[in-house]
């Protein structure tokens, strides 16, 4: 039992003293996952709006496929990207395997379906009278989309927060695509995985606390904004 207490004490020490390794890993995690989330948002919101407000054959099937991909396993994304990006793979010439860029790409692909799907849900939740009112007020196609998205902003923000949560907490793709290279591609989840296997309990707990703390902060900010 003592090793758990010792681990927690060491974790607190690492966090309070702003241990350089811990800080660097945290910073990279935030940078990779935030970037992936921002890019995914810029794609998912227009894409979701395009699906929601256009009628085309196969629309229902497409939405079903997107919803199925909510539970896309992270290691599958990692494996597919690895095969594409490895030196002899079709995209090997890019030379980005085991870089933060590749990790951003992996996380973005991972969260794109859930963010698109939840954007569709958010937009379809906008009251029909509000949609009619926007049109009736003389909106152009673009103005219409802008106002509906704006009206659904709280629900879309929920989708963004969920996407970010999935991105920063996944480990399968990060380890396959990033390679968990010290000082280059080591993020919170891969570091916890490695430290635990090496019996560095203190470091693992510290990184775990930070990961939870990030989730708490994101959730709090979103809640405050939604209730404002």
């Amino acid at each position: 039992m003592g090793f758990i207490i010792d681990g927690i004490l060491e974790a607190v020490h690492l966090i309070v003293t702003l241990d350089p390794d811990v800080m660097e890993i945290t910073a990279l995690s935030l940078a990779v996952s935030l970037t992936a989330t921002v890019i995914a948002t810029l794609i998912a919101v227009p894409f979701g709006a395009a699906i929601q407000f256009n009628d085309f054959p196969g629309k229902k099937v497409l939405i079903q496929v997107i919803q199925t991909l909510y539970s896309l396993p992270t290691v599958i994304v990692g494996l597919l990207l690895f095969l594409l990006l490895t030196r002899h793979g079709p995209l090997g010439f890019l030379g980005i395997l085991f870089t933060p860029q590749a990790m951003i790409l992996a996380q973005m692909i991972l969260i794109l379906p859930i963010m698109t799907g939840l954007t569709i849900t958010a937009l379809s939740g906008v009251d029909a009278t509000i949609r009619d009112t926007i049109l009736s007020l003389g909106a152009t196609r673009l103005q219409f989309l802008r106002h509906v998205v704006r009206e659904a902003r709280f629900a879309i923000l929920g989708a963004v927060a969920l996407g970010f949560g999935r991105a920063i907490s996944e480990v399968g793709a990060a380890i396959l695509i990033g390679g968990n290279i010290y000082g280059r591609t080591r993020v919170l989840t891969t570091a916890i995985s490695l430290n635990t296997s090496q019996w560095n309990i203190g470091s693992s707990i510290a990184l775990g606390i930070i990961l939870l703390g990030i989730a708490l902060v994101v959730n709090t900010v979103v809640t405050i904004y939604q209730q404002r």
């Binding site: 009251d127 009278t129 509000i130 009619d132 009112t133 926007i134 009736s136 007020l137 003389g138 909106a139 152009t140 103005q143 106002h147 009206e151 902003r153 709280f154």
Partner: peptide
Amino acid sequence: RRMAMVFQKPAAFNESVYDNIAIGLRM
């Protein structure tokens, strides 16, 4: 844009009263 319509169900945008009334003009 030469007409305006009010619907049966009272509906307000999730904005201030000012921004609600301004929407058509801003468009």
